[in-house]
Each structure stands twice: as C-alpha cells, then as structure tokens.
Simulated assay, not measured.
Amino acid sequence: MHTIWKGSISFGLVNIPIKLHAATEDKDVKLRNLHKDCKSPIKYEKVCPACDVEIKNEDIVKAYEYTKGKFVVLDEADLENLKRENEDKAVEIIDFVKMEQIDPIFYDRSYYMSPGDGGGKAYSLLRKALEESEKVGLAKIIIRSKEQLAVIRVYENTLVMETIHYPDEVRSAADVPNVPAENKVTKKEIDTAILLIDQLTTNFEPEKYTDDYRTALLELIEAKRTGKEVVTPAEKEPVSNVTDLMAALQASIDRTKPKKTATRKKRAATKTKKEA
C-alpha cells in the first residue's frame, strides 16, 4: 500500500512514528474527450489571454485575487518555507472527544495509519486507549500544502485518520432555501412513515451495495470494444404519480409486503412438503 505521508503523531509525551496510506480509492470510469472527426485526444493548453501566447510552467506564478482583477503574487520560495515550517512539526492530538459529537457533514477523506520504525508499541497503546475510552483524537496535520483538522479512530484493529472540514468550511443549514419551519404533518402520517421505516430497516452490509451505473458503463464499453450487440437494460418501474402523502405512504408499505408474504408462503410449502 503506497505511503503518502511520513511523520509522527503525539499525545502528551507519547510520540508515535507513523505512515499514512489512502484508505479509499476513486473507482469512477475516466472518459477522454476526442475530436469527433479524427478521434484524436483534445489538448488543453495554458494560454495567456493578454499576450495570446502559450505559457510554460516556469512562466506561471501563484497569486491570491483579493478583489476583482487585483492580485497578491506569492513567491514559490515563500510557500515552500511556510510548508516546511509546518510539515516538520509532529502531529499533535489536541483533544479527545466522543465520536457521536461530530456530525458526518464534517468528514472529508480517510487514511490508514501504520506504525513507522520502532512505533509498534506506542501505536498499540493509542489503539487500545481509544478503544477502551470509546473516544477519538482530534489533531492537525498538513497534507499537500493544506492544514487539515483530523479525527483519529480505530477501524478493524487499524488506526484511521479522517480529515474533517473546519466549521467555516461547512455552509450554514439556515441558508438552505424553502426548508419548512414547522412539521405540518398529522400523527397518523408520522406513524405510517415510521411503519414504513421499520419494514425497510435492516443491518448495514456494505458489500451488498454496488455502483450500478459504473457496472453498466463498463459493460457498455466492453461491448463496444469487442463489437458485441449493445443490450439496453430493462426500464425501471415508473415512479408513481401519487400526490397524496398518506396514499403514497400506504402504497410504499404495500409494495414491501408481497416479498415477505411470498417468503412465508415458500417456507410453509417447504414445511408441508417435508411433513408429507
């Protein structure tokens, strides 16, 4: 597993050399843009609109636009010094909190943490302490020139670092338009909705959820590549045009019943067959 960051993490006077490894991967199917006539890949060139010339990487500088058309130019040396000054520091766990206090909206990326040379015992100590205290650590780390707030927790006997957004990076829910201020629903509607939720409730088994669009896209690509006939998938059942809330809830409940009834009938038939 590729190492993307090396350093150390500490809590109190305990210092743990660690390595970070990406815990997730992007499985999106990458499509290229081609010229329709000759099927050549399209090039994207860096061009200065004022000079009307193509620009090389060495001719590009970074800048911050503080107002429309006004920039503060930042030297590469300044950015490197700032980056080095922060990256050389050990990552320190600054707080320990209950995980349920952190809303999922804050979470960003996940990284596995493995112990560096000589860090096995301290790694095990932090892992065990987090498990028994039922808490997670909050730390700061710089990854790819950006300071990140991060949660350190245990996942399947491995320490995981989850980068999380700062509060000012999460937009206010109060700014979402057209959210009803009051729940104008009846007790019967609530009870029926809860009944529907109960009927659809199950244990979370991540392996049963798949990316159907990606699978269909890859099958389409393979069919075109090998010259096979492209099969159009069966159309999904059209969405019901029921506008009455209670009617929609009841219809949803009715749709979930046949499966369970059929299963019970199948079990009964099997039982009768065995008895015979």
Rank of each mutant, 00 (worst) to 15 (best):
I4T: 11
W5D: 07
K6V: 05
G7I: 02
F11L: 14
F11M: 13
G12D: 11
I16P: 02
K19M: 10
L20P: 01
T24H: 02
K27T: 09
R32T: 05
N33Q: 10
L34C: 09
L34H: 10
D37Y: 11
P41L: 09
Y44F: 13
E45W: 00
C51D: 15
E54S: 14
I55W: 00
I60C: 03
I60T: 08
A63W: 04
Y64F: 15
Y66N: 06
T67D: 15
V72K: 08
V73L: 13
L74A: 09
D75S: 13
E80P: 04
K83N: 15
I94Y: 00
F106Q: 11
Y107T: 00
Y107G: 00
Y107A: 00
R109D: 08
S110V: 03
S110T: 06
Y112K: 08
M113E: 02
S124T: 05
L126N: 06
L130H: 04
E134H: 15
E134N: 15
V136P: 03
L138E: 04
A139R: 04
K140L: 03
K140P: 00
K140R: 09
I141L: 13
I141D: 07
I142Y: 00
Q148Y: 12
L149W: 08
A150G: 04
V151Q: 10
E156S: 14
V160H: 09
E162N: 14
I164F: 08
H165A: 10
P167W: 01
D168C: 04
D168E: 15
D168L: 07
S172M: 04
T186V: 03
K187Q: 12
I190G: 01
I194R: 05
L196I: 03
L196E: 02
L196N: 02
I197D: 12
D198K: 13
T202L: 04
N203H: 00
N203L: 00
N203S: 01
K208H: 05
Y209S: 06
Y213V: 03
Y213M: 01
A216G: 06
L217Y: 05
L218Y: 03
E219Y: 02
I221D: 10
T226Y: 11
G227K: 06
G227T: 07
V230M: 08
E237W: 03
P238E: 12
P238Q: 11
V239Q: 05
S240R: 07
T243E: 11
T243L: 07
L249N: 00
L249R: 03
L249A: 02
L249I: 02
Q250R: 15
D254V: 02
K260R: 13
R264W: 12
K266W: 07
R267K: 15
K271G: 05
K273I: 09
K274R: 15
A276V: 12
